[in-house]
Amino acid sequence: MRIRLPDRPGALGRAAAALGTVGIDIHQVQALERAANRAIVDLVVALPAAMLPGAVARILAEIPGVRVEGSWQTSDSLDLDTDIEVLAETVANPGRALHVLVDAAPKLLHAHWAAALAVPGGDVVHASWRTPKIGSVELGTLRPRALTAPDGSRLALAPLGSRYAILVGRRNAPPFHPTELRKLSVLADATARVLTGVPEQRRGGLSLVRPSTQG
């Protein structure tokens, strides 16, 4: 859930207290932006079994100065040191560095899927579980940026060295924030540096995934 609230002491505490009174458990808080006396924060929460996401939005909307930017269902939150764990795994297994990043990216960015694309063609070379069926992607100028797909899905794209790019998607959610794009870009750049030292034959085996079979 993404919320906008006043950037002053106690504002986030009031939101957390309101959620706690109805049994909502906050797993993670990430501050995305602080400017002009306003803050944008992502909350990862677990709802009671009978509660719908719309009820949470209504609870927060009743707090003066708080505005809900959007809410979406995602996988379980990860520990805050998971970024480091992903980088450690890529260093330990450089031949699988691209796979490790793609498979971890959905949880790292609270998204639903991720795919590595060949440059410049845009063909999928590896995709995470539940990636929808996608054809070749028009990459254009390869730089970190947020996009919106024709079906309304929110996308984040970042270069992964000169040979690949990573595309991350989520549904029914706000656009990827610049803070999230920076995170993806840093991880992609680090992974690309690991891949640079991998002999070409070890990069092989990145077979074209047929995403429609992934559930």
Rank of each mutant, 00 (worst) to 15 (best):
R14T: 07
A16M: 07
G23M: 09
D25L: 09
I26C: 03
Q28W: 12
R34C: 01
V41C: 00
D42M: 00
A46M: 12
L47D: 05
L47P: 05
L60Y: 02
L60A: 01
E62I: 15
E62V: 09
P64F: 06
S75K: 14
L78A: 07
D79E: 08
T82Q: 14
E89S: 13
H99F: 07
L108Y: 13
W113S: 02
A115P: 08
A118D: 06
H126I: 10
S128I: 07
K133P: 12
G135Q: 13
S136N: 09
R143P: 10
P144D: 02
R145S: 09
P150N: 05
D151N: 09
R154D: 03
A156M: 04
L157V: 04
V168R: 03
R171H: 09
N172E: 08
A173D: 02
H177T: 01
P178M: 08
E180M: 03
E180Q: 06
K183H: 14
L187V: 09
T191R: 03
A192C: 06
R193I: 11
V194D: 01
G197R: 08
Q201N: 15
R203A: 12
G204F: 12
G205F: 07
G205E: 08
L208W: 12
L208N: 11
V209R: 06
V209M: 13
S212A: 08
